[in-house]
Computed example of a mutant assay.
Amino acid sequence: MEPAASAAASGAASGASAAMPEAFADPQYLAAVVDLLGAIGYGQLSAFERLAEDAAMAPSIADKVAVATLAAREVNNVTRLRERLGELGADPDEAMAPFKAPLEAFHAHTKPRDWWEGLVKAFVGDALATDFYREIAAFLDVDTRELIIDTLRDTGHAEFVVDRVTTAIAADPRLGGRLALWGRRLMGEALTQAQRVAAERDALVALLSGGVDRPGMDLAAVGRMFARLTERHAQRMADLGLDS
């Protein structure tokens, strides 16, 4: 068991609230939830950092304000996830730490060259991660599932990006070809990263596999999940006026 998960199991055993869902009596389940909240928490912290960088590239003051506002919402979500980790007896920093390297590697491989690539990355890349975590959330207790879905809820970012990108492509159709290639690259990198994270975290693999009293996913179901992720990506690219 990972250090953060061990700390969570210990803390939960010694002082868990009576209202805590019964599922948390299973150390393996607790470890999986800690891993998942840690991954989402670091992902949203990273999203805040990238949105701040995007704001610096924004072509207008209105765009800077819009993106900065979205960034501020990410910080609020990180705070809520860290508070939940603390309630589970986990150290939030330790829970988030294992996801720092893989997420930073993904961002290093997909560094946008300009404002437009930054917008598409935020829309497409973050949405792929959101879809992946929502799929996993289906296997969780109600309270954890609702927290994850709420913190991953779109707060107007999609509408903002679609408006800006489609308007820009209408003015310069050549931009569409470049952004379509960029979107396909993001898809490949994001799926590779999602598969890597799922495979390297034993607790998450166990969660997806199910248990005696919990449903799970066999290989065919996992394949269908990634097919759904691909279909949603294609729809988002279409929303942007881009080929997937």
Rank of each mutant, 00 (worst) to 15 (best):
G216Q: 03
A220N: 03
G223E: 10
R214L: 02
A221G: 08
R185M: 09
T166A: 07
L229D: 08
Q195S: 09
A238G: 13
R236G: 04
R153C: 05
V212M: 11
W182N: 13
A206C: 10
I169A: 00
R145V: 05
V212R: 08
G223H: 08
P173F: 14
I149C: 07
E159D: 08
E231F: 03
V162P: 06
W182M: 09
R174Y: 06
I169Q: 00
G188Q: 06
G216V: 02
T151V: 07
L204V: 14
R196Y: 04
A227W: 11
R196T: 02
T144K: 00
M187R: 15
E159C: 01
A170T: 13
W182S: 09
V205I: 04
V197S: 04
A227Q: 13
P215T: 14
I148P: 01
T166E: 02
A238H: 12
R184K: 01
G211R: 00
G216K: 03
Q195A: 12
V197R: 00
L175F: 09
Q195E: 11
R214D: 03
A168Y: 14
V205S: 05
L242Q: 09
D141G: 07
E146R: 15
G211N: 01
D213F: 03
L152I: 05
R185L: 07
D143T: 10
L179A: 02
L175Q: 15
A206Y: 10
Q195M: 12
A198S: 04
D172P: 00
Q235P: 10
L175A: 06
R184D: 00
G177S: 14
R164M: 14
V165K: 11
R185T: 10
A168K: 09
D213C: 04
D202Y: 06
R178I: 05
T192H: 04
D202L: 08
A206P: 08
L179R: 01
A180P: 13
A194E: 07
M225H: 12
V162L: 05
L140H: 08
T167K: 10
A194D: 03
V142S: 14
G211K: 00
L140N: 04
M237D: 12
G177L: 12
F226M: 15
P173K: 14
A168D: 15
Q193F: 07
T155K: 10
V212W: 06
W182R: 13
G183L: 04
R196G: 08
G241A: 08
E231V: 11
H157F: 13
E189C: 08
L186I: 15
A221R: 12
V161K: 11
A203V: 00
L242W: 04
A198G: 05
Q235S: 14
L207Q: 00
D141F: 05
I148W: 07
T192A: 03
L208H: 13
T192Y: 01
D202W: 01
M225C: 14
E200V: 13
E146C: 15
R178S: 11
